Each structure stands twice: as structure tokens, then as C-alpha cells.
Simulated scan of single mutants.
Amino acid sequence: MAVPQNKQELLDAIRTTYLKLAAGLASVPPERAHEMTLEGHAQGTQISVSDLVAYLIGWNLLVLKWSEGKAKGLPVDFPETGYKWNELGRLADKFYADHAGIAYADLLRQFADVHGLIVALVERGTDASLYRTLWYEKYTQGRMIQLNTSSPYANARGRLRKWKKANGIA
């Protein structure tokens, strides 16, 4: 999928990749969702499908936090307070821990809910606010949203499909 260049393309990318990923996640048997057999976000690690969903929820929540802070004119810690961009493995571990022990069905609901909030955020924006003003360093708000929603959704879908095939899940 091409990199979105305007509000409508961003909405289409977020919705399309989410729907495809959500369908794949829905077909994972809940009893298999917590198996630590999926390639992790840090090289040489293993995570569960539930952890993958927690990771996506975590990034989506950060997008919302960044956007809310910026809208209020507050300083925003990118990527997250207490983390630097070269510590994304540690941040991923935080996302897994934040959602540990949550039933798979509940994680899927949380993911659907935060996805809805992301869509609403983009819908409130304009082409100008999303794509014509630098928002964080060299990135527009639309690009930062895409980098932390539709791109990871597409990546997660590929990883999930590979995992399902390797584990005989249709």
C-alpha cells in the first residue's frame, strides 16, 4: 500500500489494514493466543499473539496521547516518557506487561476501541492539519499516525499469517 498523502488516503489505509488484521486475529483460537511461539519485536525473542495485540494497542494509545498533548500545547515525550527511540524493545516489553493476563477476547475489544479512537482523531483532522504542517521533527501528524497504526497493522498481519501457517491454523 502506498504511503497516504491526505486525510482520505490515511483513513482508507487505517481502516483497510485494521479490518484485514482483525479478521486474522479473530480466527486465532483463544486457547492458542497466549502461546509464546510468535517471533518477537526484538531479535531472538518470542511473544504471543496476545502480546502482538498489546503492542498495537500500546502504539495506538501513544498516538492518542501525543495528539492530545500537542493539541493542548503541552510538551510531548516521544516516543514515551522514560523511553528513547533506541529503546523500542524495552517499550514493547512495557506494552506486553501493561496487557499481561488480559483475556484474548478482551484484548481484541480494546484493540477495536482504540482503533475507533484513532479513526475519530483522523476524521477530526483536515488535509492541512494532517499533511501540510510538520508535527514532530520532519514528520507531519498524518505520517506519524500512519507510521504507528496502518504500517504496524500490515506488519502484524504478515507475522500473524506466517505464525498461523506454521501452527496449522486456518
Rank of each mutant, 00 (worst) to 15 (best):
P75K: 09
H41Y: 14
N167T: 07
M1N: 12
I47P: 05
Q141G: 02
Q8P: 06
G158D: 05
N167E: 07
A105R: 01
E80M: 15
L74M: 13
G44K: 08
G73I: 04
G89W: 07
P152Q: 09
K164R: 13
K70N: 12
G40T: 03
L52V: 02
L108A: 05
V76F: 07
L25W: 02
D127W: 08
N86H: 11
R161C: 09
S150L: 06
T149I: 07
W66H: 15
P152T: 00
E35D: 15
R159L: 15
M144Q: 11
T17I: 01
K84G: 15
K65S: 11
F78P: 04
H34G: 12
S67V: 08
E9H: 03
V53T: 00
W163F: 13
L88C: 08
D51Y: 06
L74K: 13
K165I: 13
Y153T: 03
T126P: 07
L25Q: 04
A166E: 15
A170E: 14
E68R: 15
L107Q: 08
R90T: 12
A100R: 14
E9Y: 01
H99Q: 08
I57A: 03
A2I: 11
D113H: 09
Q110W: 06
T140G: 02
A100G: 10
N60S: 14
S129H: 05
D127Y: 06
V3N: 13
R143S: 06
A33D: 03
G82T: 11
T133A: 12
K138I: 14
R32I: 05
R143M: 13
H115F: 07
K94T: 13
R132K: 15
L62C: 12
N6V: 00
N6Q: 04
E137W: 15
T17E: 00
M1D: 12
D106Q: 14
A156N: 01
G125A: 07
Q43A: 15
G69N: 07
A71H: 09
I102K: 14
A23M: 05
P30D: 04
I118N: 07
A156G: 00
S151Y: 14
L38A: 04
L130E: 05
A71D: 12
F78W: 10
K70F: 11
I14G: 01
L134F: 13
E9R: 00
L10F: 05
L74D: 14
T149L: 01
S129C: 02
M1Q: 10
G44E: 07
K164S: 11
F78G: 02
V28S: 03
H41K: 10
L25G: 06
